[in-house]
């Protein structure tokens, strides 16, 4: 390929302005990786676009910075819910309980991951009926019941659980549970992985 013609074609400007197709973007990135001339040209275009852009500066109103930083702080908290322990309370998860709604229609269960850590996965879930007998070998599953109730059988022993209770299904245990409330049971759940 003739590199000078490629540069002259205007494709690099289109790349920087983000107005070319995904395929063309991939081509440009591929060529830029190997060719310093193309890389340099892109950098020059970026700098000229930056000086063009800075001709249009307007200082935003003062209150906006605090507003934006506060929202980011909230998003930061939202993306990292505390890991469920036996000492956790429903209030600890109020933010997620308030903000997340299930869809109108779902079958037995609707689950949404709210936190994904190396050692655990945090989930909010709505369950209409329950789950039949099963076991898992990778993690212990803990529920904190936020709404509704269930009756759970773990290794042959059956017990009832209500709002505010924990249900702990240990790793490798045989377990099942049945929702006993009229409305779906809503839980904050934690899948705690075996330490590596």
């Amino acid at each position: 390929m003739n590199i000078e013609k490629f540069i002259e074609s205007g494709i690099l400007e289109g790349y920087v302005l983000n107005i070319i197709s995904i395929e063309d973007r991939a081509t440009v990135e591929e060529i830029a990786k190997k060719n310093n001339l193309v890389k340099k040209e892109i950098s020059l275009i970026e700098k000229s676009l930056e000086s063009f852009s800075s001709e249009h500066k307007i200082t935003p109103p003062n209150h906006l910075k605090t507003k934006i930083i506060d929202q980011i702080k909230e998003e930061k908290i939202f993306s990292s819910p505390p890991i469920l322990t036996e000492n956790s309370k429903i209030e600890d998860y109020q933010l997620w309980i308030d903000k997340i709604e299930p869809p109108e229609n779902y079958e037995n269960m609707y689950m949404k991951v709210i936190g994904d850590y190396k050692t655990a996965k945090m989930v909010i879930a709505w369950i209409k009926d329950g789950e039949t007998n099963h076991s898992h070998s990778e993690y212990t599953e803990i529920f904190l019941i936020v709404e509704g109730s269930c009756s759970a059988t773990i290794n042959g022993k059956t017990k009832s659980y209500n709002v505010g209770n924990y249900v702990r299904f240990p790793i490798n245990s045989n377990h099942s549970y049945k929702v006993t409330s009229k409305k779906p049971m809503k839980v904050i759940a934690c899948l705690a992985f075996k330490a590596a």
Binding site: S9, E13, G14, I45, S48, S51
Partner: peptide, 16 residues
């Protein structure tokens, strides 16, 4: 395409 390119080349003189 060439006008976009030429315009951005004109701007190069003013890069800070």
């Amino acid at each position: 395409k060439s006008r976009v390119r030429n315009g951005l080349i004109e701007l190069r003189k003013y890069i800070k």
